[in-house]
Amino acid sequence: MQVLKDDVKKSIRQAALSEFKKHGYMKASIRHIADAAGITPGNIYRYFKNKEDLFYELIQPVYEQLASYTLEIKNEVDFKLCKETADHLVILRKIDATILQLFKQSSVELTILLNLSEGSRYESVKQELITLVYQILENVFVTTKETPTPLEVNEQQSARMLAVTLIEGMSLILRDYEDGDTIKVLVDELLYLYSAGISEKIKLQGQC
């Protein structure tokens, strides 16, 4: 009997992942999940309280991993004395490596977390990543000035724009591709282009 229950729950989880990836959290339908799992909607509620509970069970593990890795990187940004541009670019690459590692382990769940979690408790995750990258870029721009001073408004806007487009770029790659090797190549290329652009911006900043 327990084996049958486990099989039903596994079918629900697989159907739910497919539904959330196709429609996102807000538009996902318990009825569609039940149909795909070959059961009635009422049977789903024997295993999960509601759609939020089902989404939580699927997404929470990858969220906890991402949150743990992000906290480690944030602590490094906050407490490590990064003096060279290369120090900060190494930290950006750690974000790259973290996202790729999580993709290898839980590709569908990570894609849903970053792209399709609007309306859930996880909808701020992407913004948290953007804020982390902004903090890194802010440190890069400040520490590479001839006389370190707080960023001007236009410099803050530039750092924010770079942070947003970097994380959005990674998210789009995860959304549009499923092959792990292709994703690694594209994310690495994206980070390389940003690193080159940031280095050039810093060089021009030093000439002003």
Rank of each mutant, 00 (worst) to 15 (best):
N115Q: 08
L54V: 15
E64Q: 15
L193D: 14
Q207H: 11
Q156Y: 07
D96V: 08
F79V: 04
H23S: 12
Y56I: 13
V62H: 01
G169W: 02
K184L: 03
S158V: 15
S18N: 13
L100D: 00
I202V: 15
I91D: 01
C208P: 08
L166Q: 11
C208H: 14
L186Y: 13
E155S: 14
E52W: 04
N115F: 08
D7L: 06
D78E: 10
K21F: 02
Y194R: 10
A15P: 15
H88V: 05
K74W: 06
L100S: 01
A163L: 07
E52T: 14
Y134E: 08
D6L: 11
L89H: 01
K27V: 01
I73P: 11
L113N: 01
T144D: 03
Y192Q: 12
A34R: 12
V187K: 01
D179E: 10
G119K: 06
S120Y: 08
M1P: 09
E178S: 13
S29E: 11
A37G: 04
A86T: 12
L129Q: 08
Q156W: 06
L114E: 00
Q207C: 04
G180I: 01
V108C: 06
V185F: 12
D181C: 00
I202P: 07
R93M: 01
K9L: 07
V125M: 02
Y177D: 04
R93P: 05
R175T: 12
D78T: 06
D179A: 04
A15M: 09
N139P: 00
L193G: 15
E138T: 08
D35R: 14
M26E: 09
I59A: 05
E72W: 04
K126M: 14
M1H: 11
E123C: 10
A16G: 15
Q65N: 11
D6T: 15
L81G: 07
R13N: 09
P150C: 08
A159I: 07
L193V: 11
Q101P: 00
A16E: 11
Y194E: 10
L151V: 09
Y122W: 07
T182H: 05
I112E: 01
A15L: 10
S11K: 14
L81F: 13
T111K: 14
T98I: 13
N115K: 07
L89R: 02
I130D: 03
M170T: 13
K5C: 10
L110D: 04
V3H: 12
Y122C: 07
L174Y: 07
V3K: 15
K184A: 08
L132R: 06
Y47L: 02
P41I: 12
A34F: 10
I12V: 12
I183T: 08
I198L: 07
Q105G: 03
T144Q: 15
K94Q: 14
E189Q: 13
M161C: 09
V8K: 13
N43A: 10
D176R: 15
H23F: 15
L151P: 03
N115Y: 08
K10T: 14
K27Q: 13
I136N: 05
L193P: 02
G197Y: 07
D7R: 09
E155V: 13
A15H: 09
